[in-house]
Design a protein around this nucleic acid. Structure first.
Lengths: 238, 238
DNA sequence: GCGCGCCAAAAAATCGATCATTTGCGCCCT
DNA sequence: AGGGCGCAAATGATCGATTTTTTGGCGCGC
């Protein structure tokens, strides 16, 4: 399955002190492509193809794949190479379930521990999100919106007091996004008043109303999951 | 800091179909050494030293380190190499906190979802653990015990319904173990009646008493953390 | 004495080539 | 026709050499 070559994304932090490694750039590029749905579940990741596609040697690619396999986005099969991790309806259900479970403990923790700086981060993230259109004029999802949506969700949980839980949450968010990107029918989701859900969420959070925040957030997450599955179903059917 | 060379551990699954990759073997070996406290926090992992130590070329080592860095046990600093992840008192506190938080959601889930097979796994794990001496005759910790202790803890949570949560829990367990291995004063911990704690835990679990199981488990975990910190304190002081 | 820049040594990162394993195909035998 | 068998191509894994970057020390000037 040949695809257009693409230049490696610009370094995360511009060459302030040290330049990024080719392996790190490849890592981010491939990760992006997996989450973005360019590389699909069960697809074999041939070193040679990737090497050519990202314009590097084999070593950086392999190192990138090794990281991704430790992370779970890629599966390594010793002596047989690397495959993009599966992601079906069942997997998404597990992701959603896990997110909701985590919210039950992370939100209360964040609400009780969060200081002013955290509150401001949430408010700011929400402000940025609110003023960003979810879709571009051509109807495709707006990357800025996606980034800000992620930041908004991470910000809410940020004060939970556990980097471990934050890390999983981030991964779970990415997997949700990945499923959505595979689903394609973004327009279906558009009818939903997500902005309103976010508004209410912020309100509950600023009021430090844990129960309400949890309920709102989990409803938000479950609805996202439901729509994504419905959306993909359509894609499969038609 | 020179150390004895060591042969790579035997393959995880014997050469049934495919042999393990050198990179995978190195990964397990280095991981073991980090958790085992042989490689200490903040230590630089020089490719050359590791290459010689594990008797391979540089590539497998680098791939192993890349996996470990994605996993968090190792930090990669682009262009500067790899360092063993920090692990101080604060980090352990966060680990313990996270474990307890997770137990609050995982145990109830497991108790409500766990079927007979799960129950049997727990019982068996407990049986194996109970009949294994925690220390060897020379006073050092018994590796079999460590493995079975881990299996016991994982078994209890196994039915929670989320591989994601299980994965973090496993990592958190390893980090706790790692701290203990760095602490060294295993004898201090020996005075504690851990077996009894495990017995009670199993009882509560078989009775499907969520609240009691959580309280027992978290007390167990917190006590472990407390002792580990106290133990390391002694090491530093004297 | 202290900071700064320069150079050499050390180390990491990357490449290209080689070795090992798996995959796929075609052939032969039953 | 079907089921191995074995070889050749494809692909992954690993090595050794090369390139790039960082580190550490030394001398110079302030």
């Amino acid at each position: 399955m040949p695809r257009k070559p693409r230049t490696l994304p610009a370094p995360a932090r511009t060459s302030a002190t040290g330049a990024e490694t080719l392996a790190s750039a490849a890592y981010r590029a491939i990760k992006e492509d997996i989450i973005g749905g360019v590389l699909v579940p069960r697809e074999w990741l041939r070193i040679d193809a990737l090497r050519e596609r990202y314009g590097t040697g084999a070593s950086p690619i392999r190192e990138a794949l090794n990281r991704l396999s430790a992370e779970g986005l890629v599966l390594q099969q010793d002596q047989r190479g690397f495959v993009v991790a599966e992601l079906d309806q069942t997997d998404l259900a597990e992701v959603i379930f896990t997110r909701c479970s985590l919210n039950e403990i992370m939100l209360p923790a964040a609400l009780s521990k969060g200081d002013v700086a955290w509150e401001e981060r949430v408010v700011l993230a929400h402000y940025h999100l609110a003023k960003t259109p979810p879709f571009r004029s051509d109807g495709r999802p707006n990357p800025d919106y996606l980034a800000r949506h992620r930041e908004f969700h991470m910000a809410m949980l940020a004060a939970c007091g556990s980097r471990w839980l934050l890390d999983v949450s981030a991964k779970l968010f990415d997997w949700t996004q990945r499923y959505q990107n595979l689903a394609m029918r973004h327009d279906l989701v558009a009818t939903r008043d997500v902005a309103r859900e976010h508004d209410d969420l912020v309100e509950a959070i600023l009021a430090r109303d844990a129960r309400r925040a949890i309920d709102l957030l989990n409803a938000h997450v479950r609805e996202t999951g439901r729509l994504a599955i419905a959306s993909r179903q359509e894609v499969k059917d038609g």
